[in-house]
Amino acid sequence: MPLLKHLEPGENFPPSSEALAYPNGLLAAGGSLDSDTLLTAYRRGIFPWYESPQPVLWWTPDPRSLLFVDELHISRSLRKTLRKNEFRLRVDHRFRDVMHACAAPRDSQQGTWIEPEMIDAYSTLNAQGWAHSIEVWRDESLVGGLYGVAIGGVFFGESMFSREANASKVALVTLVSLLKKRGAQFIDCQIESEHLNSLGARNVSRVDFENRLQHTIHMAAVSDTWTPAASCGELI
């Protein structure tokens, strides 16, 4: 059985071929969550996912769930929600609040993997222009959203939340709209879920993902804008 690589701060990640089959994609432990380490990891398709008191755990699962921007599926009920124009759309207005909302306990899970250290680390990436939050507001209440990291032609989705029906889906449609304007190719959804599959995500092999990543990670954005549509109705 292969041994899990333990990283010292600043140490290079091992090749993805050394990732464990069980648990699927676990590549290394340790290291740090500084910006340089996180960006190096994402450029190689590696992401952190752990719960205290574990060390930082780094993953590259096989297969990989991707949502290509031209394959987003908007259901009839979601179109109806968008046409109602009941929500306001914002980007990076309350990044840390979005992360806290994503970290809140949910009926389907115990605990959270979004540790305070993760919130600090990604908030730093947000201040540096790498991480972004897509936010759905009803009046002055944040009711849904998501956050992730944008590098080249890829958006690495981390987590989403919803306090009202379809609010997280509205955030995803908003994200896809923005990514199309920027010339981005796909969203890395990391691990398959029925929720994301219903929106058009699909699995590809890790080799396929890494090949696509090599061709997109250094792409220059067609547009630098992260300004969302003025209304939900403009998204369809």
Rank of each mutant, 00 (worst) to 15 (best):
V69Y: 05
H100A: 14
P53K: 13
S177Q: 12
S223Y: 02
W59P: 00
S77L: 01
S231W: 02
G31C: 10
V207I: 08
A171Q: 07
R64S: 11
R43C: 05
V136D: 05
D70H: 08
H218L: 13
I191W: 08
S231P: 02
S16P: 02
Q214P: 01
G148V: 03
E11L: 04
T40S: 11
D70N: 12
Q214W: 03
S65K: 12
H132P: 04
T216L: 10
R64P: 08
V91H: 06
N24G: 10
E18W: 07
S177W: 08
N12T: 09
F155R: 02
V69R: 07
H6D: 00
P23L: 04
L57M: 04
G183R: 09
L213C: 02
A229S: 06
L39S: 10
L125A: 04
E8H: 14
T37H: 00
N166E: 15
L33H: 13
A229M: 00
P15D: 11
L146E: 00
V69A: 03
M219D: 13
D120Q: 14
R79T: 01
D62E: 13
T112A: 07
Q128I: 05
V149Y: 03
T40C: 08
S193M: 07
P61R: 00
Q185K: 14
R202Q: 08
W113Q: 14
N12A: 10
L146R: 02
I236F: 11
V222W: 15
Q54V: 08
A19Y: 04
L142G: 09
A171W: 01
R138I: 04
F161W: 01
G152M: 12
L4K: 05
A29V: 08
L38I: 11
H100G: 12
G129P: 09
S108I: 09
K80A: 12
V143G: 08
L146V: 01
R182C: 00
I114T: 06
T124V: 15
G148N: 01
N203R: 12
R94D: 13
I46A: 01
Q110D: 13
H6K: 12
A131S: 07
H93R: 12
A28E: 06
A29L: 09
E117T: 11
Y22G: 07
A101C: 15
S159P: 14
L4W: 05
H93A: 12
H100I: 15
V56I: 15
L39I: 14
V143Y: 09
S17K: 03
R83E: 13
P55G: 03
F68W: 11
Q185L: 13
N166V: 10
L172P: 05
S231E: 02
T60D: 03
S159E: 14
I191G: 06
E86G: 06
S17P: 00
I151T: 00
E194G: 11
